[in-house]
Simulated scan of single mutants.
Amino acid sequence: MLIEHGYSRVITADGLEFTFCPSFARIAALGRPGEILHTFKGLFGSDARLNARYVLVTLCEQEDATGLLGWLDADGNDHPGSMPAQEQICLAAHLLRHGMVGTVTKAEEGGRPVSEFNVAEYVAAARVHLQMNAEDAEALSMSEFQALFEMKFPDAKKKKRDVPTREEYRAALAAMS
């Protein structure tokens, strides 16, 4: 589990473990492209608690997270879980940032506003440019997608990477022989 790519784990005082995965497939399960963005924005509004719970339930790999997150009954009564609402909001924002925005800054992206998040475009890009099958592409978070894309297509204007390119590796091997 790579926390650098947004994957998170919560372990309760009872020892129950919950894993949250901000993969493209799970992000797509939040709704249509416009709904996904609306849910993300909802984490910063008056219904942040409910939006966070929805995000966490959708991105949780375990089937039943009600003990951790709480639930609403048929009458609309809120039954809180063991995780405080504010922590749920923070975790949901963290997951969606890594699942939708990744690690780029606004300056790198151009800072243009968007009205939707189309998961299918990123899955297709991973399949075409990174030669991944659909299942592997859907398992990526945006942060992971960006890291893989940068490794395959390094930006010459950015600082030197710690990992050598294939050409640098071959040149070093030739120099040693």
Results as ranks from 00 to 15, higher is better:
152 K>G: 03
58 T>C: 10
176 M>S: 13
137 A>N: 08
124 A>E: 15
164 P>N: 12
135 E>I: 10
135 E>P: 15
140 L>W: 04
164 P>E: 12
94 H>T: 03
121 E>Y: 07
7 Y>V: 15
164 P>K: 11
85 A>C: 06
21 C>M: 11
43 L>H: 01
106 K>V: 05
68 L>S: 03
132 M>F: 09
174 A>C: 06
66 T>D: 10
91 L>V: 11
59 L>W: 09
96 L>H: 02
64 D>L: 06
4 E>P: 07
174 A>L: 10
47 D>W: 09
136 D>F: 00
88 Q>N: 07
47 D>S: 09
26 R>K: 05
71 W>M: 04
70 G>F: 04
84 P>T: 13
109 E>Y: 15
19 T>V: 14
31 G>Q: 05
93 A>D: 07
131 Q>F: 00
59 L>I: 11
97 R>Q: 08
118 N>D: 15
50 L>M: 09
51 N>R: 03
174 A>K: 13
174 A>H: 06
74 A>G: 08
41 K>I: 00
170 R>G: 05
177 S>A: 06
37 L>W: 02
102 G>C: 14
117 F>Y: 09
147 A>N: 13
47 D>L: 01
28 A>V: 06
89 I>G: 06
47 D>C: 01
174 A>Y: 03
17 E>G: 13
120 A>M: 00
132 M>A: 01
128 V>W: 03
62 Q>M: 08
101 V>W: 12
138 E>K: 04
90 C>I: 05
54 Y>S: 15
53 R>Y: 08
25 A>T: 12
154 P>A: 09
81 G>R: 05
145 F>Q: 07
72 L>C: 05
130 L>Y: 08
168 E>N: 11
47 D>A: 02
98 H>A: 04
32 R>E: 12
120 A>C: 02
98 H>F: 04
111 G>M: 02
21 C>G: 11
50 L>R: 13
24 F>I: 03
92 A>I: 08
69 L>Y: 03
107 A>C: 08
177 S>N: 14
155 D>I: 06
72 L>Q: 05
105 T>I: 13
57 V>T: 14
79 H>M: 02
103 T>H: 15
120 A>H: 04
22 P>N: 06
135 E>C: 09
176 M>C: 13
65 A>P: 04
140 L>K: 01
41 K>T: 01
127 R>W: 01
75 D>E: 13
17 E>I: 07
68 L>Q: 02
45 G>H: 03
83 M>L: 15
122 Y>V: 10
142 M>C: 13
138 E>F: 03
164 P>I: 01
59 L>N: 10
153 F>M: 09
38 H>R: 04
54 Y>E: 15
92 A>D: 08
176 M>I: 11
